[in-house]
Amino acid sequence: MRDHSRAGAVNWLYAAPAMLVMAVVGLLPIGYTFGLAGEYHRLALDTRFWPVVRTTLSLTAVTVALELVLGLAVALVLWSPFPGRGLARAAVLIPWALPTAVMAMAWRWIFNADSGVMGDLLFRLGLVASPQVPWLADATSAFWAIVLADVWKTTPFMAVLLMSGLAAIPDELYEAAALDGAGPVRRFLVVTLPLLKPTIVVAVIFRAIQTFGLFDLVFVLTGGGPGGRTQTIAVYAYDVVFRYQELAYGCALVVAMALCLVLMTGLMLGAARGGSGR
């Protein structure tokens, strides 16, 4: 008790080592990125910049939307107890836990033009004309390959968050809705969705931030190709800095990315607030 009232500032010593590491290796480099950035005028002239922003935004919108729908479905299936649920949950978590860059290689093999299993499977189903499909050589199909790999990887995370939200909904509400004659679909729309909304907002914003900064999956799966047309801002900035050695402009791209990120998060938070105000 005496410990709470007195010597509060001295207690910072407990947190000091952690704060120091985060300041020197986290905060300082972020600040320094802003310091290194320059040649901002090139952003306006760069014909690559806006296509890259558009790709990043499309990727974010499409993957997060798909993840939300699939994650919700998975959460609803795995939420209530049943024999073997632990094992099923573990199986579902595996994509999230596996290294993204490593699994990106696995996806490259699945989407391989000559002997990839994706082409063969879709050919057997009669959906493509030949089992040899150069998925990653075409900008549109390469984009969808990234979407598929990212949705596969991150749906479990969405599902876990949504399950925690589902667990917080009291059973009585479902019972009351059932007594009022509401079927399962109506119960979902009237009870589950509205009460899950805060969790959905947090999960969607969190995932949107992560997808917006996506690097490793794209870098390894498509290398940003074909012809740079699946580059995200992160991959493009990395190329500008480490391949073309244009430090100042590369950092300007990173700063632009960070600002877009803050703007996007602000807009999403605003939309969520406005939506619940009504």
């Binding site: 480099p29 972020i30 990125t33 900064g213 990315m257």
Partner: peptide
Amino acid sequence: LSLFPGTVLIVPLKM
């Protein structure tokens, strides 16, 4: 701080 993607700090981190 933790919400920013790694790209934001890699250049100075390497220096």
